[in-house]
Every structure is written in structure tokens, then in C-alpha cells.
Design a protein around this nucleic acid. Structure first.
Lengths: 118, 118
DNA sequence: TAATGTAGGCACTAAAAAGTAACAATTGGA
DNA sequence: TCCAATTGTTACTTTTTAGTGCCTACATTA
């Protein structure tokens, strides 16, 4: 059994890493299919996306729904347990916003223009 | 200038990684000197600790105070800006606690017994 | 007939993060 | 004289994380 020195380490095990918080921030807004997520995160590769989604599913925070169609359609959404992360995700997003304003007061284009999704 | 796709990426740049949240969770409780932090985090190496502390200092969330003594005494604490992370840190700690309870209901010794610090 | 779109697997390589070990500096005390 | 205590640096190695390219499946559409 995994051991932690302090409880917060258990949270980091679930949502730590480069991508998971970003994925969750997108999914908390709306249910998304794989390709949409990939377009929302221009930096991620198919491999990493799949891998991170699998781990989040494993930890019970997201749901993977496969529709039996061709071409395939897979949708990801937060589970009820995933929604218990809402407070954390909201706080992180808000802090990120104000940190950008504080750090780049001239507010040039620090944020990449979001692309068309659907 | 660094570019972000969504603002939360800016937050992850400051508190992301394996150690920073843990360090901040300790410092939010009380001011600590280097050796205390090292004992509080049995898994961290001197190098990683120093490196992470430098980066946190660089980002303005912690303060490094050097006392001119021999042997040296260095104390770390949260800056005012660092305290703006309190909501996030509290939420993460709380989520971690309940996640442990949910995941290991038999509640054996998932938490390593904390060692003596001072 | 042949290309298109979607999700994802696999083998391999590259880059980033983290760990290891040895060394420095200073001064009080054995 | 030499060691202990505290914080930190540096060079090097290992581990983890991430990226690339190529392959599958199959109904629809051109």
C-alpha cells in the first residue's frame, strides 16, 4: 500500500503532472470528445492525452463513454467524484488568471488565442 | 514571453511539480528552516529542496531569510503573495485527506508517522 | 475504387526531472 | 588538531515523462 507523509500527497498523485489539471479544467466546463480535447490542448500528443485520460478514469474522476459508431465517438466527462475537485480547479484557474495579470501587467498576448473546437 | 493556452497553466508553472505544493503546505503552517523542511519531507534530497525553494522564491511566494551565524541559519516563510495560495493549498489538503479515506477505508497506516522535527 | 475521419495501440527515441555523491565554508568544542 | 553542525554547490547518473512515426478498424462519401 502506498505511503504518504502528508495527505496532500494523495491529491497530487491524482491530479499532479503536466496535463491532468488542464484536462479537468476543460471537462468541468463541458463533456468533450477526444478530438475536441486535443484541439483545446495544442501542446498535447495523442499518446499523452490517452494516457492521462486513462489514469484519471482509473482514479474515478472522469467517465469514458464509447459510442458504437463509425468513425468511433468517445466522450469524456467528470464523474460525481470528479466534481468534488471543483473547488480546487476553480481556485487554481482564478489564481492563474490573477498571476498572469500580476506578472505581465502590460497584458500583451500572454494567452494564446483559442482555436475553433467543434 | 511565455504563452499559455488557458490561465490555469500559469498557476501550474508556479506550484507544479513533485515538491512545491508539499513545501508550501508545510510553510503555511509555520516558518521553517532548511533542515526542518528536510526532515518533514523524508523523500526529498538537499539538491531538490534547494532548487524548489529557489524557484518559489523567484516566483515571489516564499521569503528566504539568512541569519549571519555559524553554523548558518536560513528560514523560509510564505510571502504575502504566497498567502494568496491558501485557498488552493487548503482545498488540496482536504481533498487529499478524504481521498485517502475513500481509497483506503480500512485506514491502515497509509500515512507515514511524522518524525520529530526540532 | 479510394480517400476521409476518429480513437487508439506499439516500438522507439528524446528531453526533462530527479537522485547521488563528493566538496566547501565556518567556528565552537572535544 | 579534528570533528560536528548547517546550508548549499557541482558534476554526473538514473528515472520518469514526453514525443515521433507508423499501424488498425470500418462505414461514409466522393
Amino acid at each position: 500500500m502506498k505511503k504518504y507523509n502528508i495527505p496532500v500527497e494523495a491529491a497530487l498523485e491524482v491530479i499532479g503532472g503536466k496535463w491532468k489539471v488542464v484536462i479537468l479544467c476543460h471537462l468541468i466546463k463541458e463533456k468533450r470528445r477526444t478530438g475536441e480535447l486535443k484541439r483545446l490542448m495544442p501542446g498535447i500528443t495523442q499518446k499523452m492525452l490517452t494516457q492521462q485520460l486513462r489514469e484519471l478514469e482509473e482514479d474515478g474522476v472522469i467517465l469514458r463513454e464509447v459510442y458504437n459508431q463509425v468513425p468511433p465517438r468517445v466522450e469524456y466527462s467528470l464523474t460525481k467524484y470528479g466534481w468534488s475537485l471543483k473547488g480546487i480547479l476553480d481556485a487554481l484557474c482564478a489564481w492563474g488568471e490573477q498571476h498572469i495579470e500580476k506578472t505581465y501587467p502590460e497584458k500583451d498576448s500572454v494567452l494564446v488565442k483559442p482555436i475553433e473546437i467543434k
